[in-house]
């Protein structure tokens, strides 16, 4: 455990010492602030629209940060040859994977806290309300969804050689799930066999990270809170996917030659 936290600490340090992360972060904030300052009619509709756009932007930024950070981890260790002195220490490869995962996940958690606090402040400046529990529900599921994406990217970084192709594939995959994942079963219904079974299989196999994505509506439309039981179940569901991807990553990494 100590080893895993030490590894995670290095990942987090790297993230906040690199500049690209700040660029994305500040860009998101600036765009949101500019949009918020466009004071057209100040009617309810506009505020909602703004909130929706800001949240979408936050989702995209967080996904980009999560995927690019994770995709780079192990290839960079290999390329810069830091993997050799590291693996020469008494640590197992499983610990290495878990440490990298935890580091990326915690780092993204910190990023999300910044984003949501900023969003809350922005919304409060227009609406003078702090629906904290709604924010919490949306943020926690957002974080869990990022966990799944990170675990998947980590597995991808072991399978695909180049970090850029891995990031692209992961990004396209996640975007597809977010956009159409929910409708796959409906799509399947309209098709004939055997395509229908294939699509159904996909529908049940893919991690449904679009549920956290839809939580945006909770904030945008000021909907009442979701039942905590449902939130808990969804967290368990997403944790299960993280575990599956991580186990697969450990199995792949164990077989992989170091150089």
């Amino acid at each position: 455990m100590r080893t895993i936290f030490a590894l995670a600490g290095v990942v987090i340090k790297e993230l906040y010492r690199r500049k690209d992360f700040y660029v994305l972060f500040i860009l998101t904030i600036v765009i949101c602030v500019i949009m918020a300052s466009v004071n057209i009619f100040n009617d309810n509709q506009i505020v909602r629209y703004l909130k929706e756009l800001c949240l979408l932007l936050i989702w995209i930024s967080s996904l980009v940060i999560a995927i690019t950070t994770t995709a780079r981890q192990i290839p960079a260790e290999r390329e810069q040859r830091t993997l050799l002195p590291l693996l020469a220490k008494p640590l197992t490869r499983t610990q290495l994977i878990l440490g990298k995962f935890l580091g990326c996940w915690l780092a993204c958690g910190l990023v999300l806290i910044c984003f949501y606090v900023f969003f809350g402040a922005l919304a409060a400046s227009r609406e003078h309300a702090w629906p904290l529990l709604s924010y919490f529900q949306a943020a926690i599921l957002h974080w869990m969804a990022l966990g799944v994406v990170i675990a998947m990217t980590l597995l991808g970084s072991l399978v695909f050689a180049a970090p850029s192709s891995n990031s692209t594939i992961c990004f396209v995959l996640v975007a597809t799930i977010l956009c159409v994942g929910r409708y796959l079963d409906a799509v399947a219904l309209t098709l004939g066999e055997p395509l229908r079974s294939v699509i159904y299989a996909f529908y049940y196999a893919i991690p449904h990270v679009e549920i956290p994505f839809e939580m945006r509506n909770l904030i945008v439309h000021d909907w009442p809170l979701i039942g905590w039981k449902f939130i808990g179940l969804d967290i368990l569901y997403l944790l299960a996917y993280m575990a599956i991807f991580l186990v697969a990553a450990c199995l792949v990494f164990r077989r992989k030659p170091v150089n």
């Binding site: 290095v10 340090k13 790297e14 010492r17 690199r18 810069q80 040859r81 830091t82 050799l84 002195p85 020469a88």
Partner: peptide, 9 residues
């Protein structure tokens, strides 16, 4: 190791 680089940051 033979050729080493360490975490640059």
């Amino acid at each position: 190791p033979e050729m080493t680089y360490y975490y640059k940051f």
